[in-house]
Design a protein around this nucleic acid. Structure first.
Lengths: 230, 230
DNA sequence: GGGTTGCATTGATATATATCAATGCAATAC
DNA sequence: GTATTGCATTGATATATATCAATGCAACCC
């Protein structure tokens, strides 16, 4: 049964601001409709272009969100980690996904029918205000990503990415990551080979230390400086 | 008096979907709070980083929206034309503007205190749903812009830009524009010189005809092909 | 008319970045 | 134990793009 765990959504309410805006009976309703899913590393949660039926909330693991262009290049636009819900803008526009979501680690997520969530927007003003804030914040991040990727050269973009991973995704330094060099490249808009070369320079300059999956930013001020000067 | 024109917002309701969601008394209220402004070419309507006090709705002319990065490079992320309101995501996040708005032609716009609009989000579910749709559509455009700018080379980006101008901004072909070569460059993420060179190739290849401010796309299928193949 | 200003254009050159091809290297499969 | 697979790394090279410097050219000013 989907809501066999009685503390399901109530538990998440304590950890995610979005659920705190829901009234008790709304939360119960969401909880009833919820399906718990597990995804292995590399498994697709949803794919760009496909119809969007479900609202997805990540409860454990890590999910990368990326856009694909024709020539099978990818650009990672962000991550979802516990307890983030993935705002799907297409749900309010054309009922299609405009980016893909893939598990980068063993991941569990709750799915709720998109209709259920969207009807909350129409009945709960707090919830809709939260939704607007969420998508607004996402748009603001996209502005920054746009200028970073178009106005900076590779070292600046790589520095941005490392700082982003440390501050926003893993929230620690050093941090463990299972991201591949290709992911690094897809995050900073360059080829895998270029990513490797830039990282090598950073290592040689004593900016970072990379030990397998462990990344340690040794000189954050200098890295921030590289980010600033593009 | 701001609402000397009795048909003010009522008139816009007929031309812009966002106002059609407002109830009569809400519209009257917005109309009462509204200030009509005029901007000359090159005049700034609001600047990135500044506090956002006002909701802006363009009633005539053309406004470019752009983000600036440290090294005084710009990237135009879109335009607002009659009757578009400019959705300011910062209003729901940190009360700051995250992009700038500048008139590219003689422009008139109505300003309404941001608070007035934001309170409508909390009282009118139709209006908040519209707001979510608007910002969602904007986010979707940003995804596309991101991949266009990072995964395509100059000819592809220039083709995208010309198609965008013809289809979405001026909605005609040929079209008159007062945009400069620098604007073209800021739209397609390259330098002014590169923009000129790419345009020259397009002209020599018979793809477009440029006569001062008049731009004529002669071979749309081929231009779309260039856009697709990056 | 001559000067100034702002934008458009061109050419020469430097630089950043991608591509291609090869090799290394650890984990897993048989 | 050897083959295989997937990812990381390196070097050589080609290409895309920016930069710099100069010139053109129309509009406007005095």
């Amino acid at each position: 049964m989907p809501n066999s765990n009685l503390n399901g959504c109530l538990n998440c309410r304590e950890r995610s601001e979005i659920f705190s805006t829901l009234h008790h009976n709304e939360l119960i309703h969401v909880d009833m409709c919820r399906v718990r899913m597990h995804y292995g590393v590399g498994e697709m949660i949803f794919k760009q272009g496909s119809p969007c039926y479900d609202f997805v909330c990540v409860t454990s693991g890590l999910v990368k969100l990326y856009v694909e262009s024709g020539n099978d290049r990818k650009l990672i636009i962000g991550f979802a980690k516990p307890v983030d819900y993935i705002f799907v803008p297409g749900a309010y526009v054309d009922k299609r996904h405009h980016f893909s979501a893939m598990a980068c680690e063993e991941t569990t997520a709750c799915l709720v029918e998109a209709e259920v969530i969207q009807s909350l927007v129409k009945t709960n003003p707090e919830f809709s205000y939260q939704s607007i804030s969420k998508i607004s914040a996402q748009a603001i991040n996209l502005f920054e990503q746009l200028t970073n990727l178009t106005h900076k050269q590779m070292p600046g973009r790589m520095a941005d990415m490392l700082i982003y991973l440390s501050h926003k995704v893993y929230e620690s330094n050093p941090f463990f990551t299972h991201l591949t060099r290709q992911d690094f490249a897809d995050l900073s808009g360059m080829t895998k080979e270029s990513a490797i070369r830039v990282l090598k320079v950073f290592k040689d300059d004593g900016l970072v230390k990379i030990d397998g999956d462990l990344i340690h930013i040794l000189d954050m001020p200098r890295l921030e400086n590289i980010s600033r000067n593009g």
